[in-house]
Computed example of a mutant assay.
Amino acid sequence: MAADARQLDRLFEVIASRKGADAASSYTAKLFSKGVAACAQKLGEEAVETVIAAASGDRKGAIAESADLLYHWLVLMASLDLDPADVYAELERREGRSGLDEKAARAES
């Protein structure tokens, strides 16, 4: 199977299946047991680690940290009972629109 963005959807299914599981049974279940704030904090930590790897020119590190970042983003989505497809739809809605126009529209709201 070729690696592509569909991996995120498959990973999200596995992550979502861990909700309510015994915290001792998996790292994901342990994250869920700590609550949304802890999941958000972990995402933030991974974002910082990704930035550090990128800023230092560490390509392998940036790849590894980006994978961690995406995993923890999916954990946060599941902890909030959000579907990543809703984020994908928002990205699609913005497609073809200037980033400057998008920011201006959000500022007006």
Rank of each mutant, 00 (worst) to 15 (best):
A2I: 14
A3T: 07
R6M: 11
R6Y: 03
Q7Y: 09
L8I: 12
D9V: 06
R10G: 12
L11E: 08
E13S: 09
E13Y: 02
I15V: 11
I15H: 02
G20I: 11
A21N: 15
D22M: 03
A24N: 15
S26Q: 01
Y27P: 05
T28Y: 03
A29T: 05
K30N: 14
F32K: 07
V36W: 09
A37H: 10
A38Y: 11
A38L: 07
G44S: 05
E45N: 09
E46N: 05
A47D: 02
A47P: 01
E49T: 03
V51T: 10
A54H: 03
A54M: 03
A55W: 03
R59M: 04
A62W: 01
E65I: 00
D68F: 02
D68G: 03
D68K: 02
L70C: 09
L74Y: 08
L74S: 03
V75L: 04
V75N: 05
L76H: 03
L76S: 03
L76R: 03
M77V: 07
M77E: 10
M77C: 15
S79E: 15
S79F: 05
S79N: 11
S79L: 05
L80F: 11
L80H: 08
L82V: 11
A85Y: 06
A85M: 14
V87W: 14
Y88K: 12
L91M: 14
L91K: 15
E92M: 12
R93L: 12
R93G: 13
R93W: 11
E95G: 10
R97V: 15
S98E: 08
G99M: 07
D101Y: 10
A104C: 08
A105V: 11
A105S: 15
E108P: 11
